[in-house]
Design a protein around this nucleic acid. Sequence first.
DNA 1: ACCCAGGCCTGGA
DNA 2: TCCAGGCATGGG
Length: 284
Amino acid sequence: MKGIFIMDIKNTNFDLKQTADSGQCFRMNQTGDNQYGLIAYGKYLNLIRMDEDTVRLGCGEEEYHQIWEGYFDLVYDYGSIIQSLLSGEDRFLSQAAAYGQGIRILRQEPFETMISFIISQNKNIPSIKNCIERLCERFGDYIDCKERPGGGYYTFPKAEILAGAEAGELRKLKLGYRDEYIIKASQAVADGSIDLDELSRCSYEKAFMKLKGIRGIGDKVANCIALYGLHHIEAFPVDVWINKAIKEFYNGSFDSGKYQGYAGIVQQYMFYYIRHLYAKGKGD
DNA sequence: ACCCAGGCCTGGA
DNA sequence: TCCAGGCATGGG
C-alpha cells in the first residue's frame, strides 16, 4: 500500500540549491552533488536534482501529499509571477526574479520558524544553523535514520519542552541573550496564549500584530515568521540585505505595496539576488 | 584584534 | 517619531 518511496517532481521553478540557500530554512543542507537533506516535521527527506526541471524526493506518495507538496508550495504557480516581473519595468527586480526563479516560499512548522527567527537576530546564517542544531540535539527527539548520511538526527524541540527549559541551559548552547526570548515565546505557545495555527488562518495584519506582542520579536522577525511559517505571502521582511538593495537600487525607498498579495515572494528574489551580488570569493 | 551578522529593547532627544 | 548604545556570540 505504501508503493515505491520515490517521487519525481516536474517543476520549472523548483531549485534545491536556491531554496536551501534562500535563508528561509536552516535545516536543509547539501549532502552531495545535486543532493540535499532536509529535516522538518519530525522527518528526514532526501532530495536529488535529476535534471533541469526534475527533483526526486525520497518519500512515498502519501507523505508527499501530506507534507512536502505543501512544504515546498508546489501547487502554486511561481512562473506567472516571474513572468510579470521579467516583463515589468523594474530592472533590478527582473534580474532578481530571473536569478532566483527556482526559489519556493516554504510552509515550515510555525513554532520552529518562530524560534529559529528569534535566534536569527544579529547573527549570520552559518551561526544560526549551528545554534539550531545545538538546540535540537539538546531538546529534540532522536530519530534513527538509515537514508541520511550521518545516520540519526534530532527533531526540532516541542514548545512544551522549551517552555520548561532553564535560561542557563540555553546559554550553554550559545544562544546568548536570546535565552529568555525563547523561553517566554515557548511558554506563550505551550499555554495557549498564542495559537500559531490560528495565526496562519487569520489575516496577515492580525498575525503580525500578535507576533510582535512577544518579547524578542520585532518587525523583521514577525514578518519572517508570517512569511516562512504562517505562509502569509504578503509579508515583506526587511533586513540588512534588503536595506542594502533598497539603498543601492531604489534611492532609499521601496514600495512593496506594488506587489500586493505576493510581496513576500518578491522580497525573496531580492534577498537572494542582492546577497549574490555582494558575495565574495564564492563562485556561483 | 576587528567588524559584522536575515535585530530588538531601552532610554533620551 | 527617530536615533544611540548595549546586547552574547560566532564567522570571516
